[in-house]
């Protein structure tokens, strides 16, 4: 088992004001447990506020869980920050506007001591080619690219140091449908060639159906349904999943 998530919760206190005790608490993620196999794709679906992104951030150890644990197979994931990468939803907010694409892509290479100077530049060219961008991009700034191109850059950055696990938090949601279709194809192809494991978070059931092997349905921080993708889309048992499917099929 590559990832084991054990009884994971994130609880945020609701403050009444300065220096006063919290009056209540919200469980953004509430006692969630699941496992992910090597080279599989786990889809996580749910509406806004269901705790998907909080869960993603805990998987990446970007926020501390209140309770529970995320355990990666130590024999497979040897260098956590290098092997586990994330692509965020909003490509307009996740690239530093003052850095050239070349700098953005070579930063992880330098930090993880994978390549320097000429070698790093060569690697950046390969990364751009991988995600279908022209190498002239290296000297340009994020502001000079469209949303779809920026998301490709985010993807290239996440792939820079050869990760094993990619957490994709609504990576397509801000893009046009035709761009979504091309990027989805690219993700499927990269997964095959690089042997990646995906955790794919989305509210778009059609995209999940396309890419995921197994699916978790979240609502109010809890997992309300889980199963293989075929199972969930054929016979959803939980009324909430049925409602989601009905809304998407209307």
């Amino acid at each position: 088992m590559l990832i084991r998530v054990d009884n994971l919760s994130k609880i945020y206190p609701i403050e009444r004001g300065w220096f006063r005790p919290a009056c209540a608490a919200i469980a953004a993620v509430d006692s969630v447990s699941f496992e992910v196999e090597k080279e599989a794709t786990l889809g996580i679906v749910g509406e806004s506020g269901s705790g998907k992104t909080t869960l993603a951030k805990m998987l990446l150890n970007l926020i501390m869980p209140t309770q529970g644990a995320v355990i990666f197979d130590p024999a497979y994931v040897t260098n956590f920050r290098k092997d586990v990468q994330i692509v965020f939803q909003n490509p307009y907010a996740s690239l530093n506007p003052k850095m050239r694409i070349g700098q953005i892509l070579s930063e992880p290479l330098i930090i993880h001591k994978i390549a320097v100077k000429d070698e790093a530049e060569q690697r950046c060219r390969e990364l751009l080619q991988l995600v279908g961008l022209d190498e002239t991009a290296l000297s340009r700034y994020p502001g000079q690219f469209s949303g779809g191109q920026r998301q490709r850059i985010c993807l290239a950055r996440a792939l820079a140091c050869g990760p094993k696990v990619l957490v994709l938090d609504e990576p397509l949601s801000s893009l046009d449908l035709t761009v979504q279709a091309t990027l989805l194809e690219l993700l499927l192809q990269l997964k095959l060639t690089m042997g990646l494991t995906y955790i794919f978070i989305s509210h778009n059931l059609a995209v999940i159906k396309h890419i995921a092997d197994s699916v978790l349905v979240m609502r109010e921080g809890k997992i309300v349904e889980r199963g293989s993708a075929d199972q969930i889309f054929a016979v959803a048992r939980h009324p909430y999943t049925q409602r989601l499917l009905a809304a998407a099929r209307a």
């Binding site: 035709t178 279709a181 989805l184 059609a206 499917l245 998407a248």
Partner: peptide, 13 residues
């Protein structure tokens, strides 16, 4: 046609 192709793939269930 391009829009509809994308729609058929990932725009609907």
């Amino acid at each position: 046609r391009e829009l509809l192709a994308a729609y058929d793939r990932i725009g609907k269930l």
